[in-house]
Design a protein around this nucleic acid. Structure first.
Lengths: 192, 192
DNA sequence: CGATTCTTTGAAAACAGTCAATCTGTGTGG
DNA sequence: CCACACAGATTGACTGTTTTCAAAGAATCG
C-alpha cells in the first residue's frame, strides 16, 4: 500500500530512500469497508489521512438530523477535519468510506517531524495547505455567487473523478440544494 | 504605527527586542484613505497585511459587474488574497479600505524569513493559517446549511466589530443574499 | 442645500423547498 | 432464479422564500 504513496509523493518533490523510509515508519496504514467511519463525530481527529484507494465523504449532522456533506476525497487526495486535527479537540464531523478503501495516516506530531526534517516534504506540505485554503475560498465564492445550475456544472468539472461514484443526493447536499432541485436542474439540462 | 503591532504580537507569544526589531525592519508601513485600494484586481498580491487601524473588504466583480464580498478585516486582523500571494499570480480580487486605514505589510520572502528564524513567530503563524482555514470551513457550512436569517445572526455574533461599520448591502453580498432580502430579514426581527 | 449613497417597501415573477407518490436499479435471502 | 426489500432518482402539486424591478424614504457628505 505504501508504494502507492511513494509514487504519489515522488511526483511532488525529490525524496531520498531514507526520507521515504522515514515517512513510512511514521505512518499508519488502514483498510476500511464501504460505510465504515474513519472519523466519528465527537472523536478527536488523530490523523491527517492520505487516500490510496476508495472514496470518502466528510459530513456533519445538524440538530434536525439533516446531513451536510462538507467534502469528498478520492484517490491521491487528503482528508482531515482541520479544526479537530489542529487543536486536537472533538470533531463535529463524520468521515465515511463510500467504497472499500485504503488509507495512510500521520499524527500531527509525526507529520510535524516530517515537515521539519524533510525539506521537500516541507514545501510539499505548504502547497497542500495553500491549495486547501484556495479550494475553500473558491467554494465560498461559488456559494455566494452561483445559481444551483452553475454550482452543479462547477462540481462536475472540478470533480470528474467523484461525480458518478457518489449518489446525487450527496452532491446536492455538498452544493447546498435539495436533491429534488438538483434532479430538476439535470432534467432541464437534458433538453439542450 | 509599529508599536500597535508590537502590542498585538506580544499577546500571541514571547518575543525578544531583537526579534521585534527584525519584524519591523522587514515590514512596510502604509496609510490609506477611505475608498483607496490596497490590492487591485489583476495585480499580484505582494504582501500579507496586518490591519492596525481601519476596515477593509476583499471583493471580486463578476462578468455582469456584480460585486461579491469575500471578506472583511478590521483592526488586529490580517488580510491577503491567499491564491495570489502564495503563487504570486494576478489576483481576481480587490481589497478596499472602507475607512481611513493604517497597515503593516510583509512580502512572502520576509514573512518566510520570520517564520524560519523566530520560533514564536512560527507557531503564531501556524495558528493564523489554521484559524483562517477553520473560518473558511465554517463559512462553507453556514452557506450549505443556514437560512438567510441564520446567516445574518451568525454574522452579527461573529463580527460585532464589523457590523455597524459597513453598509448593509455589503453584509448582504458577504452572506450571498440580496440587499432587499437582508432588509426584510431585519424588518421581520424587529417585530419580536 | 443638492447630490450621492444607502435602506426600505411593494408587487410580480422566478426559484427552491417540501411532501407524497412513483419509478429504477441493486442486491439479498428464500 | 425469483420475489422482495431497499436505496436512490425522478416527478407533480403545492408552499414558501428569494430575487428582481421600480420607487420612495433616510442618511451622509461635500
Amino acid at each position: 500500500m505504501f508504494e502507492h504513496f511513494e509514487t504519489y509523493i515522488s511526483t511532488k518533490g525529490s525524496f531520498t530512500k531514507e526520507e521515504l523510509q522515514l515517512m513510512r515508519s511514521l505512518s499508519v496504514e488502514k483498510k476500511l469497508r464501504k460505510r465504515q467511519l474513519l472519523l466519528h463525530e465527537g472523536e478527536v481527529c488523530k490523523y491527517k489521512t492520505f487516500v490510496v484507494k476508495g472514496l470518502f465523504r466528510a459530513y456533519c449532522v445538524n440538530a434536525d438530523g439533516v446531513q451536510h456533506v462538507m467534502r469528498f476525497a478520492a484517490e491521491n487526495h487528503w482528508i482531515v477535519d482541520p479544526e479537530s486535527y489542529n487543536k486536537q479537540i472533538p470533531s463535529r464531523y463524520n468521515i465515511e468510506a463510500l467504497e472499500d478503501a485504503e488509507v495512510i495516516q500521520w499524527t500531527p506530531e509525526h507529520f510535524e517531524e516530517l515537515f521539519t526534517t524533510v525539506p521537500a516534504f516541507r514545501s510539499f506540505s505548504k502547497k497542500l495547505i495553500s491549495r486547501a485554503m484556495e479550494a475553500s475560498q473558491n467554494r465560498v465564492l461559488m456559494h455566494i455567487s452561483y445559481t444551483a445550475e452553475e454550482k452543479y456544472n462547477e462540481f462536475i468539472n472540478s470533480f470528474p473523478n467523484v461525480f458518478g461514484r457518489v449518489p446525487l443526493h450527496m452532491v446536492a447536499s455538498y452544493l447546498g440544494v435539495s436533491r429534488e432541485t438538483l434532479s430538476r436542474v439535470r432534467h432541464a439540462q437534458l433538453k439542450r
